[in-house]
């Protein structure tokens, strides 16, 4: 009896919190809900303020395909993000592993110098990198897209911090068994650290998929454009068709939304990655 009364008392005290959370949640979710309904409506109705699902989805889809090469952009976005994720994870996890499990004074110094790269803004390196990439004839290629983004201090730090929990005695035992150094990495480290890899993969894929400034610089050919570039082009005309635009935005958001809902825990871990 008393326990029940106590809970209801606590819940009553939490009413302001609930109201606040409901308001914030509504504001957070509504623009995305509206994006989805707008994709099913005619542009005029969207402008008039219709917020429920309509019947124009097929029509908008046809218009979208007429205006932009949707499948090419989806294909490029998937290919680029996928390749970048795999290469970045391999290179940064190797480095994080090396910095933590083979650490000595010189390597610690190298690591702290690398961290300085966190402060280098993208716009500051954009011009020299553009010259470099175009000099190597890598404009409009996956290499040009990902080379500046595969080795990041953030990912290296994330793997380094998480490597602290890697059992060193397992390594020693493997060495006594005669496993080569590289095989210890691939056969022991990688499987044990899979949750770190999952978090790192989610965050890297998201970043690669959503990248805009650098792709805009390096993917000069319209045929190589990615999804964020495609939807930006959709909005650039004099008259904007809101139904078509929001359908494009929806296509650009579906992969990241799916990842968000399926791997939310890994996503949160990926964001806070290097913090322990």
């Amino acid at each position: 009896m008393t326990k029940k009364r106590k809970t209801s008392h606590i819940q009553r005290k939490l009413i302001p919190s609930y109201i606040f959370l409901i308001v914030v949640s509504f504001i957070s979710v509504f623009p995305l809900f509206w994006m989805i309904t707008a994709a099913t409506n005619q542009s005029v109705d969207v402008a008039r303020g219709r917020i429920w699902f309509g019947t124009y989805l097929a029509e908008n889809f046809r218009n979208l395909l007429d205006r932009q090469d949707l499948w090419s952009a989806m294909g490029h976005s998937f290919l680029f993000a996928f390749v970048q994720t795999i290469v970045a994870l391999l290179i940064c996890s190797l480095a994080g592993y090396g910095f933590e499990l083979y650490h000595d004074k010189q390597k610690d110094l190298v690591f702290s110098i690398l961290l300085l790269a966190m402060m280098v803004p993208q716009v500051a390196t954009m011009i020299p990198l553009y010259k470099m990439i175009s000099g190597m004839h890598m404009l409009n290629t996956v290499w040009g897209f990902m080379l500046p983004a595969i080795s990041t201090p953030f990912l290296i730090m994330m793997f380094r911090q998480n490597s602290r929990s890697f059992p060193v005695d397992v390594m020693e035992a493997a060495r006594i068994d005669g496993l080569s150094e590289l095989r210890i990495f691939f056969q022991m480290y990688m499987p044990i650290m899979r949750s770190t890899y999952a978090a790192a993969a989610v965050i890297t894929f998201m970043n690669a998929w959503n990248a805009y400034l650098w792709p805009k610089v390096v993917l000069t050919d319209n045929a190589a454009q990615t999804m964020p570039m495609l939807i930006a082009n959709l909005a650039a005309g004099y008259t904007v068709d809101y139904g078509v635009l929001m359908l494009g935005v929806l296509f650009c958001s579906i992969p990241t939304m799916i990842i968000f809902f399926v791997l939310q825990k890994q996503f949160a871990e990926g964001i806070t990655g290097a913090v322990k």
């Binding site: 995305l32 959503n210 929001m246 935005v249 958001s253 996503f267």
Partner: peptide, 18 residues
């Protein structure tokens, strides 16, 4: 509250613009 992070910066800019 976390959901807006699932959208790209270009996407949400265009949603707010519209």
């Amino acid at each position: 509250v976390f959901l807006p992070c699932a959208t790209s910066l270009v996407s949400y800019s265009l949603i707010f613009k519209s």
